[in-house]
């Protein structure tokens, strides 16, 4: 293609957005390697202010409370490996459960014929409009009466079976699969669930991956609900643990360095996943089948 001024400008705009997206991550790293007390005085330095690994030591609990306080942190630390395991268990279980159960329901809504189907689908979809804050307290009470407060299943349950979005998303895909595929099987006498697992699900790998990744990331990053029901050490997930580093007013300034270090650490597992599956993740985002 020829190089015109228009194309140069277009590339410049594109790179501007790429930089605007990536540079804040550098700033996160730079802050995380700084001495919190020195940040205020060196706000314009592009390098870490008084380079130190202190913030990371604070996050992993390797610094004594006295050392932490001297660098402007708090005595609190993250039991990183425990919270990492909790986050992994919750995010994996929710992803598997939600994608599977939502796909099954979506198939019933898209392809099976039964009375009241469309009405029920509309009702399910209506749940998309219920503000999460509205259901959080009743759900909290439900989880409490199930005796699952401060347990990982308690954190998983509300999103383990379905979300309206997941059903909507998968139904859209199933609607686009040519009728001939499952009808042929049906004429052979195969039962619907068999068709679903043997034929429909395997050819739906792309949307299932997309939905799975979206669900995993959403669950991993969820903050409000796990904050309500997972308060103990044993049930804390990484995002909730980050709350420990939140601002300390009126005791003083936030431990920005520690906070950024903790944020990086919390994001690390997702980043690693991303580095490994990056290409697949990016290519999977789309409307495969949605017309």
């Amino acid at each position: 293609m020829r190089l015109t001024w228009g194309r140069v400008l277009a590339w410049a705009v594109l790179w501007f957005f790429v930089l605007a997206t990536v540079l804040p991550f550098y700033w996160m790293l730079r802050t995380a390697l700084s001495d919190n007390h020195a940040l205020a005085a060196q706000s314009f330095s592009l390098l870490p202010a008084d380079l130190t690994l202190g913030p990371f030591e604070r996050v992993f609990g390797l610094a004594t409370p006295e050392e932490a306080l001297a660098e402007g942190g708090s005595g609190a630390s993250l039991d990183f490996w425990l919270y990492l395991r909790n986050s992994l268990v919750v995010a994996t279980a929710v992803t598997v459960g939600q994608v599977l159960f939502s796909s099954m329901a979506a198939y019933a809504f898209a392809r099976l014929r039964w009375p009241g189907r469309d009405a029920w689908f509309a009702v399910f979809l209506g749940a998309l409009l219920v503000p999460p804050i509205f259901t959080s307290l009743p759900n909290f009470l439900t989880v409490k009466s199930l005796g699952l407060l401060n347990t990982l299943p308690g954190i998983m349950l509300p999103s383990l079976f379905m979300t309206p979005f997941a059903i909507f998303f998968m139904r859209q895909f199933f609607l686009g699969i040519p009728r001939e595929i499952d009808e042929a099987a049906m004429i052979d006498g195969a039962k619907p669930w068999r068709i679903f697992f043997r034929i429909v699900l395997p050819i739906s790998a792309a949307p299932v991956t997309t939905l799975g990744i979206l669900t995993f990331v959403t669950t991993w990053n969820d903050y409000f609900w796990p904050l309500l029901v997972g308060q103990t050490e044993q049930s804390k997930v990484l995002t909730v643990a980050l709350g420990v580093f939140r601002s300390q007013t009126p005791q003083g300034a936030p431990d920005w360095a520690g906070l950024m270090a903790a944020s990086l650490v919390a994001a690390l597992p997702v980043m690693v996943l991303y580095a490994v599956f990056g290409r697949r993740v990016i290519n999977s985002i789309g409307f495969s089948g949605i017309k």
Partner: peptide, 20 residues
């Protein structure tokens, strides 16, 4: 257990109502 002031009271209320 130390929790920053911003989280302290909401965390406490939730913990009270959940019996923990």
């Amino acid at each position: 257990t130390q929790r920053g002031w911003d989280d302290y009271w909401s965390a406490l209320t939730t913990a009270f109502s959940s019996g923990t």
